[in-house]
Design a protein around this nucleic acid. Sequence first.
DNA 1: GTCTATATGGCGATAGAC
DNA 2: GTCTATCGCCATATAGAC
Lengths: 205, 205
Amino acid sequence: MGNNQKIGSTEEKILEAAKKVFIQKGMYGARMQEIANEAGINKALLHYYFRSKDQLFEAIFQEAFTEFIPKAFSVFHSKKPFEEKLKLFVSNYIDVLTANSYLPIFMLNEINQNPDRLGHMVNMMGIVRDKVSVELKINEEEGRYRAMDTVQLLSLVIGMTLFPYLAKPIIKGAFSLDNETFHAFLEERKILIPEIILNYLKIKN
Amino acid sequence: MGNNQKIGSTEEKILEAAKKVFIQKGMYGARMQEIANEAGINKALLHYYFRSKDQLFEAIFQEAFTEFIPKAFSVFHSKKPFEEKLKLFVSNYIDVLTANSYLPIFMLNEINQNPDRLGHMVNMMGIVRDKVSVELKINEEEGRYRAMDTVQLLSLVIGMTLFPYLAKPIIKGAFSLDNETFHAFLEERKILIPEIILNYLKIKN
DNA sequence: GTCTATATGGCGATAGAC
DNA sequence: GTCTATCGCCATATAGAC
């Protein structure tokens, strides 16, 4: 393992091109010819490096899974206080998503069409839930937070954070936001989302 | 216009089958043969009723758009107080989604791959935003709510509500929820989501 | 490793009998 | 309206020269 392919190597050019086309068109909409064009090479070379379209797709999909998701959830493994973790997660997640804005809808769609692809993600999310559970419990027992189900909390935060990327064309179209305004809209959520959640969790004196 | 095709007519059987297959596999993953099998008829009949695969797809897509979306957002045209509208919207939206749980990921994905398909939705969402804006403004001026951007509010509520349907296999898999538990999880959100939003909006005395 | 040329199969679409 | 048979294309995949 390890990313010690030369930068600019043919294999890497193929992976870049395939990522772009697969994410844009999906597994069935993508064409091997288009990937070859995008990579500036011949169609037959794709089969030389990756035996089939399926295997090329799987390489892209797994790469997204093993790099993207862990990066987004890494904060939960730190030792910071819960409120800080929450703020950092949202902020960090928004940055990662902004840099890969077409990845989420692609991944969700492919997982829905073939749930077998879930793989390791299941374990990772389970660990995140357990860690968050412990912190919620402590805060609850010490009278700072109200009781709240961890799965609800996580899915609310992730839902709020992720949605603008999934519905980007709808939001931009329906509310006539240009790129700059849309970006500002996303940035604002780094503050807004933790604020809303913490405001609900915290018991007022 | 008008749904006065006989129930069980060939055309309706085709539409049912096409809806099922297109939603499951997407535009490019779907096969005309599979739709024909699902409808219990011959492949050639599909072309007799709908000239091409594209036109059949468009029929399905537009039906989802013109029935599903307006139903979900109809509450905002009523005269109830804002808090009630919010609660009804979330509750009603969850019911509509539960009855069509594979529709959202399908629609979002197809819109992302071809944003031209947005069509009328743009106008409808614009109207919803304007109505909500007015109500937020009144509540703000009368000192009950803090100031909040309408697009943020709408996208937070929709994001929280929609997300479990988009990530259904992930949530069920990662947190090992069976069907019953997952359904209870969804029901709980009818209360939770409005509570969180209103708790944030309302200014405490 | 990289290319051109070609094989192979599948899919959307049509022709034409009934 | 509904079927069977078939066309024509295009996409994946392979063969084989360089």
